[in-house]
Design a protein around this nucleic acid. Sequence first.
DNA 1: CATCTATTTGGCGAAATAGCCAAATAAAGC
DNA 2: GCTTTATTTGGCTATTTCGCCAAATAGATG
Lengths: 102, 102
Amino acid sequence: MPALKKKLEDRAAVIKALGHPSRLLIAEALMKGEMCVCDLKDLVGADMSTVSKHLTLMREAGVLNCEKRGLNIYYSLACDCLGDFLRCVDRLACGGKKTTCC
Amino acid sequence: MPALKKKLEDRAAVIKALGHPSRLLIAEALMKGEMCVCDLKDLVGADMSTVSKHLTLMREAGVLNCEKRGLNIYYSLACDCLGDFLRCVDRLACGGKKTTCC
DNA sequence: CATCTATTTGGCGAAATAGCCAAATAAAGC
DNA sequence: GCTTTATTTGGCTATTTCGCCAAATAGATG
């Protein structure tokens, strides 16, 4: 109900939509252009239904768009700002884990 | 074992560390400067142990640094590129969900 | 219309995550 | 050295997420 909470949850949903190895792989692949579900299935190497659910989640979070043409459904990134996004993630991931606290 | 998989998982861990309402709130607050756990507990409004676990997760993912001074432990963002990151997320979140497929 | 193809949906068990409580730790101050 | 204060850890349950399978849908093609 509180607007602030809803806003936080919407944004968390966007982030969550990218916070999974398969979905990250999908997002990176789509930076080079749209792809249909069966191609993404080959890329990810999981059951098509699994990939479809990942894609639905990403679309509902607002990260992906889709368009049907012929027999296939083509998915594409909803925003090209993801490049900077992933660069930032890379920088953080490279930092190496600090497993012990202060 | 495969290096690619590990890399994807590390990056997904960074993203996951931000993909939760409370952790997102924490990250935003820390953009303005470091804070100790008890202040963050007040901000989030959850049990201190819960907040502490969120912070540990974020630190282990490489998103936060911490430093002990006196009685308190101060947490801070490991990277200032998070501003752009969150702006991008905002843009995507504002797009509105597309609940129906093509 | 019957069929084929690409995709989504429903359902289920397994695994991961969240959040509370109580207990442990660690350093500070008396 | 004992107590107080700040934080983390362990343990537990409830919830969510993941990934497969089988079934349903939707549109193209014969």
